[in-house]
């Protein structure tokens, strides 16, 4: 099942050229770029692993693309995303995040519905299989 999260999730996967254009936009806003990867794309998993350090002070997207290539080489069968972080006081948060790499076969999510006290309904999402 195709996992979607972050920006552009309803679009087809971005090509490298499109990723590069997005990174240029990120850099033009003077946001820092971080590359993260994980093999556990559960929506509640916010702890993806960082690839290297976040990149501040870059002027050109090429630097990010080089790191992305390296990351793909090492973790080609993982989910990789690019985060843009705004360090301006008052924001200090991720402004943009999108998936740039996904494994060949993706796990799916199964949703469980449970009756709880009263007429409450609880939902649980579980990752199953590949």
């Amino acid at each position: 099942m195709r996992i979607t999260q972050g920006c552009f999730s309803f679009l087809p996967d971005l090509t490298d050229e499109q990723i590069r254009a997005q990174v240029e936009y990120i850099l033009s806003r003077e946001w820092a770029v971080g590359i993260e990867f994980t093999d556990e794309p559960h929506p509640r998993n916010t702890y993806w692993e960082m690839w290297g350090n976040p990149m501040f002070d870059l002027k050109d997207a090429k630097g990010v693309m080089m790191e992305l290539d390296e990351c793909r080489k090492a973790h080609g069968d993982s989910y990789i995303r690019i985060n843009a972080f705004d360090s301006t006081r008052g924001w200090e948060t991720v402004m943009m995040s999108f998936i740039v790499n996904r494994p060949a076969s993706e796990p799916s999510l199964r949703t469980w519905r449970t009756e709880a006290d009263g007429r409450h309904i609880r939902y649980t999402h579980e990752l199953v299989g590949r």
Partner: peptide, 14 residues
Amino acid sequence: APKTKEVLKKAMGG
């Protein structure tokens, strides 16, 4: 290596 690469990344495009 990381240090040199860091500098090179910053210099890309310039």
